[in-house]
Design a protein around this nucleic acid. Structure first.
Lengths: 192, 192, 192, 192
DNA sequence: CATGAATGAGTGTTCATTCAT
DNA sequence: AATGAATGAACACTCATTCAT
């Protein structure tokens, strides 16, 4: 019965277990044997669903990069005004929350990801988001504020895990600080 | 000549190469064979100087944690006023700059480090620094500001690498933003 | 053809080669590379069938300890009379003959085995057999006779290898001496 | 002071530690590093005193084989009567007691020793001792009794370690059984 | 849709041994 | 009489990957 219900969703189950283990132990330290054992299948079965180990990782990122791409596309269609920037952060915050484990993984395995084909593409996306909220002619400190806004959002949620309080409250607090940073960077009158 | 001059500094040379490779490729993906080959010695030679691979990593962190411990001790002896917090960040900024590659490594290999004996000890240190700059009764957003200040400093310097500009200017800009965050968190009148 | 016929019996073939090499050279001096080469497979193939090197050894002992356990169980269900003791030795003699190479290995690698998980369990079994044939209140010399009976059986067969004569004749001679020792130990009237 | 008193006796100290560790863990599992660490010298120091690891072992056996050689020479000069055989066992028992750890080592590392140059020479000695107490034309069982007598003496002392009782009492008991076996083998009237 | 069996390349680690000093 | 530094060869073990069934 249990095995009947599982018919056809093996691919999804692999992804679920992979996200969990990758986030917990890192990509390199997680072996396919481990994933297979948790699912009670053989390693070879994984290869029916994915061509390589890296392929599993890439498939996970697809769920993550799609919302980001949409976000970027949306942002580019908007005027470069403060409101756009703030809204971008708001939407990004929600996207992050939904793909939290994957982001935690990304945050903690940058060295690994950098070498993977996915690394470049992700960095690209981050730069594109920065382009939307950042003014290249602004003073250095303002540019740092924008970078910091994004990083704060990435790190914030995981770094705050041991702090007491409702997760949603924490998300809002992080978002508030990020928006503030961007607002400050935007409104700062600069004479470059 | 080259090999004569090298006598006695092998341990240091191992550390240098290790820092470089660990930062570049990550801890797991850097093999002892690779380190040995770069130094033109055998793997076994590494084991004369270090008991295990992890031991190499630990030895690297010693150079890093000592200044942090001094900083924490200094901070604890000061009154919990804004000035102390700002000065702590200023000093931390300098410490970070000096051990930049190691911090880049740490920033990018959190998943790996977490499992190592060193992970806990480093997290402890971060929490102790937070205790100095953060007020546990402050509103959530203010606490986020303090966390963000530290993370901004960690990430800032590496994330800004592709941006043009003098490294020292960038360091100051990052520091400025961090100080601002902490200042705001401190001065915020809160009625908890 | 040869390789086709071999399908499915690799595990057994590993055990066969392992017994032979362990007995010939000792456990420590026999490397997995050596076993693998003899079988014309890779080392990794061994790990498909056994989790560790020690596991191979343990699996070999399973074939040995099962008959011993049966023997012990049988002996415990019998009255502590001379007949039982003699019959135990007779049955043990047969068991030993069947697992001769393994016993030779055990006899010659006691130091190694002692440190392995198997060591304790084997010693236990020997003590349990002793309990059946030995009277704890008997004079020391009688107790020695019982210990000697078992040891004679262990060592006898291998020590007598270079002596001319039919193996079965030798087995019977060893058994005869062992039975004699136990008989003497049993019938000895003692006033402890 | 301690180090002054140690001057010149390093060779002896190496032997002492080696005997102890070899007996405890076996020859293969005892590394020179371990021996050196126990003596608080470097591995290289061992090589000042002994040419190879095997050389240490050989030097240990010298202390053991000398008394055996004397014993064999003595035995050969005596008539092949029961008294000679009994006296041989008595003397051997004392020799064994004096070199107990080494004999324990030999008993437990036969597979190792067999491959060493020393192995053959030791086996030779055992055969020579057998020649003295054993009649090659006697019935098989009698020959087994003689082999058993020697083996009982070897094994007896270590196998009886967990048994309660004074070591000297145990030695005598073992000797008693061995003498008995040889006596029986000798007096047995045989018509081959 | 999945398994059983295997591989080749690699890992970190240990060892006995050497030799200039 | 002993050390510091190193080597070369080996070892047990793990990994991602393959493929016939």
């Amino acid at each position: 019965m249990g095995s009947r219900q599982r018919r056809g969703d093996t691919r999804q189950r692999i992804q679920d277990v992979a996200v969990e283990l990758f986030a917990e132990q890192g990509y390199e330290k997680t072996s396919l044997r481990e994933i297979a054992e948790r699912l009670d299948v053989t390693k070879a079965a994984l290869y029916y669903h994915f061509k390589t180990k890296e392929d599993i990782l890439i498939s996970l990122f697809d769920d993550l990069t799609r919302p980001m791409d949409e976000l970027i596309e949306w942002g580019r269609g908007q005027p470069h005004i403060l409101d756009t920037k703030q809204e971008l952060l708001r939407r990004y915050s929600l996207a992050l929350t939904q793909a939290a484990p994957l982001f935690r993984f990304m945050q903690e395995n940058q060295a690994t990801i950098r070498e993977l084909s996915i690394g470049e593409s992700f960095k690209d996306r981050m730069l594109k988001m920065l382009e939307i909220i950042k003014d290249p002619d602004a003073p250095l400190a303002d540019q740092v504020r924008c970078v910091s806004a994004l990083f704060t959002m990435h790190a914030g949620m995981f770094a705050l895990k041991d702090m007491e309080g409702d997760p949603e409250d924490k998300r809002k607090a992080v978002l508030e600080v990020a928006i503030e940073l961007v607002t400050q960077a935007h409104s700062d009158p600069h004479t470059a």
